[in-house]
Design a protein around this nucleic acid. Structure first.
Lengths: 242, 242
DNA sequence: TTTGGCTCTTGATCCAGGTCAATTCACGCC
DNA sequence: GGCGTGAATTGACCTGGATCAAGAGCCAAA
């Protein structure tokens, strides 16, 4: 078990039987009896990059915890223009309570490992356990904060600021512990250029040009199109526009 | 009591003593004993258009229900670029649970009437009453859905589509009952051109030009800069980009 | 009634980022 | 190795919306 997992499992008293692994998210709110009951109807699954998890108007009949990988939530206009409206990292929750239809598409951006439960089971437990609803509220508030942060980026930042903000967002999500201190950060981009463009409200060409510019200025370097090293973190932060 | 109020008070069994008026929002989750207790420390207040309700990093020490008017939630970059990240209409809730600092500025867009409670009192009741937390979760999910809808608009729509989407959003909020049926809708804009620009990620000039274009095409008419009549609703909807 | 200070509109110009069109690169697969 | 395919880069050009600069409408105070 590596450091990353330690962070995510801190303070979780019981094992989720279904996932055969400790994790946070909603399971943390349940007692062992509930977890055993849940395990009977839930399952750990692995989804290949690119696979669609939840269709736009499709009926959602289960909730999931993201155990590993990145899931993108997208919205699409009738003519095909697309916008990513959320990225779910482990140990985020996937699913829209109190609504059978999802307003968004969910798609695996990388290979994803999920622990999913039937909707009905979770909703039954939600009635019994206020702690479960409390966790959902906290997760939803976190997502709302993130969405609002991103609205400022979408509406008011330049392409250059958008790309810098995106790189910092990914860096922070990949490992939130490597905070202010270190100058260099290295990580793999979980998204293609097309995905990044859809996230930032730009075109792939503009994203590519901004990467080129950052490379030329010695702020980042990229290997094999995915592996990014931020060499001048403070300059990237300055560019992101505080 | 007009139709509008009926919609908002449907199914509310008890009076909120503080507001001296029935309303939904969080009060609906409380029993009469709790409402009486709450009334001792809470108050109805009227805020003039333009007044700041909550500062960016200011400590929030009370929650509020919006009884009338519109509150805008904004985020600002260090150089002054601003984005409206949410609009709160009656009977929305105002305040960020589980965090003493707000990530956004809240400002009265119109004259606003509020019913506010001390943070501590609400949080005490939240521990006792799961129903209260349930209402907060529903409101937060609603705001998240709205934020994500708006991200698609900010990231991917043209100026023309943005303005059309905005007008429809206001029309629907001012009176959600006048749904699909009617061709004409009339309402007062609760926002100035500058506010609309900050909401749409545009400049005031672009917003103004789009209004002019809509007027020229006979889709809307505007009196006194605020009073809008949508004369060709279906054409506005087509322009909003589904 | 005039004056001052708003907000809104309109026009003229500019440029960031979109569009279109080639390459070039990464990574299988034979 | 050579080849095919989809992803990424790069270049040339264009345009939607920003910017800059006047006006016009509105209202409140003198």
């Amino acid at each position: 078990m590596n450091l990353r997992q330690d962070v995510h499992t801190a303070g979780i008293p019981v094992l989720c039987q279904a996932c055969e692994a400790r994790h946070r998210g909603i399971c943390g709110a349940l007692d062992s009896d509930q977890l055993v009951a849940l395990a009977k109807t839930s399952s750990k699954q692995t989804i290949a990059s690119g696979a669609e998890l939840v269709g736009d108007t499709e009926t959602v009949e289960h909730y999931s915890n993201v155990l590993a990988g990145v899931v993108k939530l997208t919205k699409t206009l009738s003519d095909g223009r697309q916008q990513i409206v959320g990225l779910q990292f482990a140990p985020d929750f996937l699913g829209r309570p109190f609504k059978s239809e999802s307003a968004v598409n969910a798609e695996a951006a990388t290979d994803v490992s999920l622990c999913s439960f039937p909707k009905a089971a979770i909703e039954r437990m939600m009635k019994q356990s206020p702690e479960l609803e409390h966790r959902l509220l906290r997760q939803t508030l976190k997502e709302l904060d993130e969405a609002r942060d991103w609205m400022l980026t979408l509406g008011r930042k330049t392409a250059s600021e958008k790309v810098a903000s995106f790189l910092l967002l990914i860096a922070n999500h990949i490992d939130p512990t490597l905070g202010e201190g270190e100058e260099k950060v290295t990580f793999d981009l979980p998204l293609t250029r097309a995905d990044i463009a859809d996230f930032l409200g730009l075109t792939i060409e503009t994203v590519s040009r901004q990467f080129t510019k950052l490379r030329a200025e010695g702020i980042i370097s990229i290997e094999n199109n995915r592996h990014v090293t931020v060499t001048r973190r403070e300059r990237l932060e300055a560019r992101a526009g505080h």
